[in-house]
Computed example of a mutant assay.
Amino acid sequence: MTVILEPEGLYPDNSVEEPIFGPGVRILRGAARAHLSELPDELCAEAEGLMTLRLAVPGDQLARFPKLRVVVRMGVGYDRVDRAACAARGIKVCNVPDYGTEEVADHAVSLALGLRRGLFLHHETQREDPPAKWGVIGTPLIRRMSVQRFAVLGCGRIGTAAALRAKAFGFDVVFHDPHLPNGVERALGVRRARSLEELMEQADVLSIHCPLTRETEGLVSAKALALLPAGAVVVNTARGPIMDLDALESFLRSGHIAGAGLDVLPVEPPVEPFPSLLRAYRAKEEWLKGRLVITPHSAFHTPEAWDDIRRLSAETIRDVLLTGLNTNVIPPGL
């Protein structure tokens, strides 16, 4: 009998999973909140499939799962799973790349628009005591969309959706993704940058949408950020470690970068000692007013997205574990 383990107890029952898995599949649920090690050994001993959202799957925990054959990360990113350790055991690792596309793309473009229209800046000034004068504020943040280039780093499902949304708002859209074949740009009606450097040099708005891999960790470095046009805006709804947060702070302080919207941070939730930029943000330092917006990795969130996570995760583990398909299997080398 195949046993599926959903270790965080995210959902109250098995009403969605049971029809997808069919008869003969016993579903075990845990109540771990911080670490996989919180799960009882007897649950781990039976699990052939593991579906996890927030909990990491470190290699040192795999020995507790002697029957494990598939790990499904209930989301797009898969950096929380030790794929090398899984590969050594012959355990397949999957993600769920087709959920939350609309939500994250909407969130990314909303951050860019909110910064570029001065929404956050003017909102903050009107809350001051005494309130700031009534009227507009001169700032390099605010520009007409149609005179700007919206640069998408990573043009997968979410990056594509963000590109199309930005195009609808009048941006000149350009993307860089070395893994996509030629012709994508014609299909989308956008332009292609052949290198990261070419993308950065024309990014009035940079929107990051690539996965966190060995290739992309630290990709948006100080060297890369220095190539941005003066007054650029940076948005990251992908993964925190892709961008150098200290470098972002430096360019924000100098004014070279006008504003930033972050839904992700290098460490989540942030812990002491906080990065310098986060300390300044929380202290409401004057130089950051209206220029930095941080949301708590919530870009994916809608009730509809939560339903999609559950259903699509179950369908993925059914395909791989029960029918032998390779749906959403991540190659170990990525």
Rank of each mutant, 00 (worst) to 15 (best):
G170R: 06
T160L: 12
A258V: 11
V329C: 04
D244Q: 03
D79T: 03
E17M: 12
P331H: 08
A247T: 06
L225D: 02
R73Y: 06
L252I: 09
S221C: 13
E102T: 15
A161E: 14
R149F: 04
G49Y: 12
A112Y: 07
V205L: 04
E8P: 04
P19Y: 13
N95L: 09
L245M: 08
L312S: 02
E42M: 06
I317W: 07
G170Q: 05
L119E: 06
E128A: 08
D246G: 05
A163W: 11
A163K: 04
D98E: 04
P40G: 00
L312R: 15
A112H: 04
L325F: 09
S37Y: 06
V293F: 04
D177T: 09
K167N: 02
D13W: 09
D13T: 12
K289Y: 03
R282N: 10
G9M: 05
L288F: 06
A163F: 10
R279F: 05
F150D: 05
A226V: 07
E268Q: 13
R279W: 04
I158S: 02
N236A: 02
E46T: 07
E217P: 00
E201H: 11
A232E: 02
V293A: 00
G118P: 00
G183V: 13
V25H: 11
L53S: 09
R69L: 08
L225R: 05
T2W: 12
L312I: 12
D319A: 14
N14D: 15
L277W: 06
L292K: 00
V174G: 01
G170I: 11
D82G: 00
F175S: 00
V109D: 01
A187C: 08
A151F: 10
K133G: 09
A163S: 03
V220P: 03
L188G: 01
L10Q: 11
E197N: 14
S146D: 14
E197F: 04
A305R: 10
